[in-house]
């Protein structure tokens, strides 16, 4: 008789569940997503759970388990956040609460957002997508701080950072967006958990990346590797956004759609403080249009 394993994470849940189920075929793996608050069906599941794989703080997990009289083994996994491949990407929070939906879901371009809040035209914004601007904004130096931050995210979890990260680092871009790992990254995360749960080593090693569907890839946004950013990572790049609908859009289309979306908003409604306090943005982009000489824009 296998163990009851409950997997609870954010948008990582699907891939993590699929990979753990594959590596632990004798166990019963169940999953549910944590969407910022305790999901309704959690406690009944925990009551019968032998293992609870979750990506909430351990103290919070222990409190929930104790509160419902359950005593599963708790395995804390990280919520992966890695902006090194997409340093221009940012969420935009509404000051009244919630996230701003943009041209490609909840993801926005810092350059577009800055341009909008400072009165840039579409052409002004387009002209900013060029290597010297990226350099000024620190996009070429994003790797080291992103690694350091991710290391910090892993520290309080049960997953060894080096064991997860180093195999992925050789595989190219393992993030679809800053918060959505590719299936490779989720399989690697599952391997760490499966080892902790005494899985068959052969099943842990197996190339599940080539077997399991990538649910996030199939159903959500893929942010591009900007060519100049990709260059410094020794990766191929292109300005192509893949929308959740599957549509592919190029840079001019992306910028036009972003600016159209923002046109109905008052910049004061949107929290861009993280850009305003970053001295690289005014220094590189200026605070009023036209900030830069037009000339560089990109298609695919």
């Amino acid at each position: 008789m296998g163990r009851n394993i409950v997997v609870m994470s954010n948008c990582q849940t699907g891939g993590l569940h699929a990979a753990l189920a594959a590596m632990l075929p004798d166990d019963q793996v169940t999953s549910l997503a944590w969407l910022g608050a305790e999901p309704a069906g959690l406690r009944p599941l925990l009551a019968d759970a032998d293992v609870w794989v979750c990506s909430i703080p351990r103290s919070q997990a222990e409190a929930i388990a104790a509160d419902c009289g359950a005593a599963p083994r708790i395995v804390v996994v990280p919520t992966v956040w890695f902006p090194a491949f997409h340093p221009d990407q940012t969420p935009l929070l509404l000051r009244r609460g919630g996230e701003l939906e943009g041209a490609v879901g909840p993801y926005h371009s810092k350059i577009c957002a800055w341009g909008w809040t400072h009165g840039f035209s579409v052409d002004d914004v387009l002209s900013c997508f060029r290597p010297d601007v990226f350099a000024g904004l620190g996009y070429f130096d994003a790797w080291a701080p992103a690694v350091a931050e991710l290391r910090g995210i892993f520290e309080p979890t049960d997953v060894d950072f080096a064991g997860w990260f180093l195999p992925l680092g050789r595989r190219g871009a393992f993030m679809l967006t800053n918060n959505h790992p590719r299936i490779d990254a989720l399989v690697q995360l599952a391997r760490s958990v499966a080892v902790l749960l005494d899985a068959d080593p052969e099943l842990v090693r197996y190339g599940w990346e080539q077997v399991l569907p990538d649910g996030l890839l199939a159903s959500s946004v893929v942010w591009p590797l900007y060519p100049a950013v990709a260059d410094v990572l020794d990766l191929p790049g292109a300005y192509v956004w893949r929308l959740a609908s599957g549509e592919l859009i190029d840079l001019p289309t992306f910028v036009v759609r972003c600016m159209d979306r923002y046109a109905s908003l008052d910049p004061a409604e949107v929290d861009t403080d993280h850009l305003e306090v970053d001295p690289r943005f005014p220094a590189t982009l200026g605070t009023s249009a036209p900030a830069l000489v037009s000339g560089a824009s990109g298609g695919r």
Binding site: N10, C11, T13, G14, G15, H17, A18, S31, A33, L35, G36, T79, W81, T90, P91, L93, E99, G105, P106, Y107, N178, N179, L212, P213, D214, G215, L216, A218, S219, S220, A244, D271, H274
Partner: peptide, 18 residues
Amino acid sequence: PRSVVCDEETVAAAIAAS
């Protein structure tokens, strides 16, 4: 700021597609 909490539809679609 991070956007680590996807909406329900996004997560459900990802789980279904996984």
